[in-house]
Simulated assay, not measured.
Amino acid sequence: MDVRIFTEPQQGASYDDLRRVARTAEDAGYDGFFRSDHFLAMGAAAERGGEPGPTDAWLTLAGLARDTRTVRLGVLVTSATFRLPGPLAIGVAQVDQMSGGRVEFGIGTGWFEAEHRAYGIPYPPLRERFDRLAEQLAIVTGLWATAPGERFSFAGEYYTLADSPALPKPAQQPCPPVIVGGHGKRRTPQLAARYADEFNVAFSSIDTVEDRFSRVDAACKEIGRDPAAVVRSIAQTVCVGRDDAQVARRARAIDRNAADLRANGLAGTPAEVVDRLGTWRERTGVDRVYLQVLDLDDLDHIELIASEVLPHLR
């Protein structure tokens, strides 16, 4: 099982904080370092003020592309409401070049209305957000797939591109891996089947994940694609301790309850978490897990999981 660290810097983190965690994850042997794409703190972090404030996801990855060496980098997931597809394709391709081909491109509809209001970003109804996401996927992947010297055009309801040189090209050819994430029952699986190298379901129960994975299988078969071509991934909050007392302390540090995390996340001793992930793999066939780490100052937590959990998953 591929294991990655996933961070939520809108809850209060600077670039230096993220660089420290990314380097720790790289040195500890994780497969990837990912971050969210949000502009507003949530929950208890918002009540505390959300300092120091948000950092831009792709600016962060551009910095980490030069400040790391081997770890995969990405966003889980970019909000389609935040950026125009043409400039997004340019930016992601550039970061991929800067990293030597280590970027993965995750994208979803966007869902947090308050952050749109806070920063003046239009927030259309859900149906329109899905329509825009579909057009963005077609445009970004189409630009990257356009052969050198050829031109790309697109005429959609929301975006029109005319005679684009489709540059720059990403380092990875034909394109960086595309991740489609979300909980939608119909359109999300359809988009994943058509465009995605990976399908992610975050912070959901095993039953829900089983259902969404089966929907991707069906959507792939409808268009004649092998369902096995799509990597299946989950994201879960992680809280691991050497004993119950340490688990409880780490849960309190992120304003969570240890019992709730044991029931609905990945929490407990290393052995408990290994067993839990074994159940996930047996029930859902999941290939990859993103461990949501919320206390970015607790580097020992990341190193403990690397030393006591990762060896049992590979």
Rank of each mutant, 00 (worst) to 15 (best):
A89K: 00
A89N: 01
W111V: 05
A118S: 15
Q97A: 06
C175N: 09
P125H: 15
T109G: 04
A138T: 14
G106T: 08
A147H: 04
S164H: 14
T81P: 00
V140N: 08
G110A: 11
E150H: 15
R187T: 07
R187L: 12
V178R: 00
T81Y: 07
V178Q: 02
G108S: 14
E157G: 15
V140K: 04
V95H: 06
F105N: 02
S164D: 13
E135N: 13
A147L: 13
I121Q: 12
A89C: 04
P174V: 09
L88D: 01
E113L: 09
G120D: 15
I107Y: 13
L126M: 12
P170V: 09
P176Y: 05
K169Y: 04
S99F: 00
R102S: 08
I121G: 03
Q136E: 13
Q94V: 03
R132S: 02
P168Y: 04
E115T: 02
A114M: 12
A171L: 09
P170N: 07
V103E: 00
T109V: 11
P174W: 09
H116E: 01
H183A: 09
G182L: 02
L84C: 01
G120N: 12
G101M: 13
Q136L: 08
G86M: 10
F112A: 15
L143R: 03
A145V: 07
A80D: 09
G106L: 02
G106W: 11
L133G: 11
R102F: 10
W111E: 10
G184N: 04
H116V: 05
T146N: 07
V95L: 03
P168M: 06
A145Y: 04
F130C: 08
A166I: 00
R186A: 03
G100R: 01
A118H: 11
D163A: 08
I179N: 00
G100P: 08
R127E: 11
A134S: 12
A147M: 09
E104Y: 02
A138C: 10
P87I: 01
R83K: 13
A89T: 09
P168T: 09
G108P: 05
A147T: 12
L143S: 01
F130N: 00
L84D: 11
P165H: 03
E115P: 00
Q97L: 14
V103F: 10
P174Q: 03
R83S: 02
A118M: 13
G184W: 05
A114D: 10
C175V: 11
G142F: 14
F154S: 07
V95E: 01
H183Q: 09
Q94C: 02
Y159L: 07
L167Q: 07
G110R: 01
R187W: 05
G106F: 02
T146V: 14
P170W: 13
A114H: 12
G142H: 10
R127N: 13
S164C: 05
C175W: 06
P122F: 12
K169L: 01
W111Q: 03
W111N: 15
T146P: 13
P85R: 00
Y158N: 13
T109P: 06
G100Q: 01
E135A: 10
G156A: 11
R127Y: 03
Y119T: 05
I139P: 06
A80T: 15
L143Q: 01
L126E: 02
V103I: 15
G120R: 13
V103A: 05
T81C: 10
Y119F: 15
Q97P: 06
A145G: 02
R102L: 06
P87T: 03
